[in-house]
């Protein structure tokens, strides 16, 4: 048996959240999410929480469990090493009901950093003449950050988000780096004008909390520092691309010509 103390809040009845206690027969291998489902099915059907994939891939079950924000489905009850478990909704968001918070600030901030490949060549995007090539090393330069679930855990952990509503937050800043360090992308200038601002990059003072709690090893703290480096020293890939163009113009003798493009020019 484990004791679950869960924060409840019903916007229609309550003015403040309160804690409610449940006893759950815990078996080996049960995750926190399993226990929440047990409560909902057997003890109290009014308990609200969000979950979908129950395998750490949809990012909907983030909550504040025993003093740290985590994914309920990825947290084994046993790993907490205690019989009293306290579950609260993620901090730094608005509570809709019980453990359900409104993540829309997260999505809005994510959108602000233009999280897509921006190409400077509109004609090429419309009528591509060749593939976008990417070497494994280039892929590795951003792949880690592409695993972000948008679970919102990092914003719940960040001490700057706690006091600064406008701060873009670890998730969005990490995605700014993810797209800017993609060799197919040309949007660095557009993105830096969004993140190199008063409530952007420089509000991060490396508390490291986001990197510690991110369930996917996205390491937003790392991405933010690398983005700061880009903001200071400029964007290496852009310089590399200029160099490439130069090489393309004067083929070096003895090096075989590139294969014919697979998509024909019209």
């Amino acid at each position: 048996m484990a004791t679950f103390r869960i924060q409840r809040y019903n916007p229609e009845k309550d003015t403040r959240p309160y804690l409610q206690t449940y006893e759950v027969p815990v078996e080996r291998g049960m995750s926190i999410l399993d226990c929440l489902f047990y409560i909902k099915e057997n003890l109290d059907a009014t308990l609200s929480f969000r979950a979908s994939c129950r395998m750490g891939i949809c990012g909907s079950c983030a909550m504040y469990i025993n003093g740290l924000p985590r994914l309920a489905c990825e947290t084994q009850v046993e790993s907490l090493r205690t019989d009293t478990i306290e579950i609260r909704p993620l901090p730094n968001y608005e509570i809709i009901k019980d453990l359900v918070v409104d993540l829309s600030p997260l999505f809005d901030k994510h959108q602000k950093v233009k999280p897509w490949i921006i190409s400077s060549d509109a004609v090429e995007v419309d009528r591509p003449t060749k593939e976008y090539s990417q070497s494994p090393a280039q892929l590795e330069g951003y792949l880690q950050f592409a695993y972000c679930l948008k679970c919102g855990i990092c914003l719940a952990a960040c001490p700057t988000v706690a006091t600064d509503k406008e701060f873009l937050g670890p998730q969005a800043l990490a995605q700014a780096f993810r797209y800017s360090s993609d060799n197919r992308d040309n949007g660095f200038k557009e993105r830096i004008s969004v993140v190199d601002t008063l409530h952007g990059l420089w509000r991060c003072h490396m508390a490291g909390a986001c990197a510690e709690v991110c369930p996917k090893g996205v390491d937003p703290a790392l991405a933010i520092q690398l983005m700061k480096r880009k903001a200071i020293f400029g964007h290496k890939e852009e310089q590399a691309r200029l160099l490439e163009a130069l090489l393309e113009a004067t083929p070096i003798p003895g090096i075989p010509k590139a294969p014919e493009p697979t998509v024909k020019k019209k």
Partner: peptide, 24 residues
């Protein structure tokens, strides 16, 4: 519908909780 604002404000930056030394 009413919402409950769960932002931690000053407590959120003063209290380091279970995070690492860098947080302190």
């Amino acid at each position: 519908m009413r919402r409950y604002n769960n932002r931690l404000w000053v407590k959120g930056w003063i209290y380091g909780g279970n995070y690492g030394i860098e947080r302190y």
